[in-house]
């Protein structure tokens, strides 16, 4: 916990500093008769974020906050494995949307999750993996008229559009 608290505070402090620099691309000073410039609002907020992170770091050194005294691990082995698998498979799924589209990416993700993390039976896995994209298609593409990304599988959907739209 202790290490995680410090690492997180330092990362967030670095992000705040980057935000401050980025805000400073616009005037951050006081424009007479008008008030703060365009960059002032985010600049001072980012400065505030930075100060907060520093206060977390300060209390970490003095060990005054509850988390900086905690000896519990930030993530135990199990949680770590769970986190990496889920976050990793989500990243792969979203990345795959760019190439094979939502309608192939979602079922693959569902199959992976249900079968390998949930250890459910194949009929159930197949049922969910087939039903989800069908429901998604009719709800979003037909009812809401919002096209979802399909990557190179786009031509496969032309006949469906002809049929329902």
């Amino acid at each position: 916990m202790r290490k995680a608290e410090l690492v997180m505070a330092l990362c967030l402090a670095a992000f705040s500093a980057y935000l401050m620099l980025k805000s400073a691309e616009l005037p951050i000073g006081w424009i007479p008769d008008e008030g703060p410039g365009g960059g002032a609002f985010p600049f001072w907020l980012a400065a505030g974020m930075f100060v907060c992170c520093m206060s977390v770091v300060y209390r970490w050194f003095r060990r005054t906050s509850p988390i900086s005294q905690s000896t519990e691990p930030y993530m135990d082995k199990n949680t770590q494995r769970m986190f990496i698998t889920i976050a990793g498979s989500l990243t792969v799924m979203i990345g795959a949307i760019h190439f094979i589209g939502v309608y192939f990416s979602l079922p693959l993700f569902l199959m992976f999750y249900l079968r390998f993390l949930g250890r459910h039976s194949w009929p159930l896995v197949a049922g969910v993996a087939i039903a989800t994209p069908i429901v998604t298609f009719f709800f979003f593409e037909i009812a809401l008229l919002k096209t979802l990304p399909k990557g190179f599988t786009e031509p496969l959907f032309y006949p469906l559009y002809d049929m329902f739209l």
Binding site: I86, M93, V102, L110, H120, V128, T147
Partner: peptide, 25 residues
């Protein structure tokens, strides 16, 4: 109902729901 069925479906809903308002990956 086991959480391992619910969780992936909710993840899918999140991804699609995050895309729809602006239609931007």
């Amino acid at each position: 109902m086991p959480f391992t069925i619910l969780a992936p479906i909710i993840f899918c809903l999140c991804v699609v729901g995050g895309y729809v308002p602006t239609q931007d990956m």
